[in-house]
Design a binder for these strands. Structure first.
Lengths: 88, 88
DNA sequence: ACGATACAACGCATATATGCGTTATTCTGA
DNA sequence: TCAGAATAACGCATATATGCGTTGTATCGT
């Protein structure tokens, strides 16, 4: 039975998203940014990311992707792994 | 002029996604997994992620989120930063 | 008081990550 | 050679990350 998905109705649930982890990441990013005395706007400009997205990340509203982490790391002159170096 | 977005037509472009970086990440994840002699299916089960998603990540087809990295790290008994510890 | 600066919060668009199933292909050991 | 295991690849659904603009709020120096 190919293409069974077309005929079966099921409820989609994203199980992976982890709010406590993305909040911890946002807090950590804010610490890295403020320690380097950068404003959100300056970081946004360096990383070529909209400032609104920087805000959402720091407030822990979004489940950031590794490409974004890479862009932020370059803007902060850090290795990407530094951005994940925090405790939950 | 509030809600200007409603009236202005503009083309949306995702500038952040970085295919070479997500490919390098996938290759690195595959190395971590095979070094521990785990099949994709075993890793998928431990991390509670669909096996098809593990495959897509390792083939560098998707821009993985930090929640997924966290889940994979737990399943691999590594700190999340280990998953970003690679060269592009 | 007031203008400037920083950040929060919203509104809405598109692209895509994930979930979950199936089918196709490749690898591997007896 | 060939059956089973592992992986690739596909199909399609929903949730959401991002892009880009605006408005709201707080702080601060003057």
């Amino acid at each position: 039975m190919y293409r069974l998905c077309e005929y079966i109705h099921f409820r989609y649930v994203n199980k992976i998203r982890d709010n406590s982890y993305i909040k911890a990441f946002g807090y950590h990013l804010r610490e890295l940014r403020t320690k380097k005395e950068l404003s959100q706007e300056e970081l946004a400009y360096s990383a070529d990311i909209p400032i609104s997205q920087i805000g959402r990340i720091e407030r822990g509203e979004v489940n950031t992707t590794i490409s974004t982490i890479n862009a932020l790391a370059k803007a902060l002159n850090d290795h990407p792994k530094v951005l994940l170096d925090f405790k939950v």
